[in-house]
Amino acid sequence: MILLELFFTFLKIGALSFGGGMGMISLIREEVLGHGWMTEADLLNMIAVAESTPGPIAVNIATFIGADEGGIAGAALATLGVVLPSFVIILVIAALVKNLLKYEGVKAFLGGVRPCVIGLILAVAATLGLGTLLGIGKIGDALTVDWRGIAIFAAVAVSAAVLKKIRKKPVSPIVMILISAVLGMILYPIGV
């Protein structure tokens, strides 16, 4: 049943999303593609919406997929699922094991998880980049280069670096999303 499936899928994601918002992208990608809930392009659209609306990205993504697949009940269950593990873990820490982080074993375990999560994020970025810009979803796919996409990628990377230099602080993702939207509207309608 879709509602239970949404709840348990997001419970699993919530329990293992170390490393903040982007840390869960690899898990979410695997689940939504595996369940056939979304295509890779849908996933990227949804991340953009989650980044440009207030609130934790994880919650935004859960609500969005839940609503898409199971209406308001789906949205509520997916959101509950993604929040519940954090809630329970923190409650246990706050109430019982105040110095969980002082245990060397816990530190050692997290020491293994941290580089893993970073590696997964980088690899997901590479996979999504190959799919979006070069049309390669898996080995054997024909190369279809999206030159306009590559131009937008370069423009976004350069303008982020320049804006950061000028403003002396990291640029908000929303600004970058707006820039890329304008570039998309200019470049994609041009027939090639």
Partner: peptide, 14 residues
């Protein structure tokens, strides 16, 4: 069209 541009941006954000 805008979202095709945005998809590229999200790859960069990740």
């Amino acid at each position: 069209y805008a979202f095709r541009g945005i998809q590229v941006c999200v790859v960069w954000l990740i």
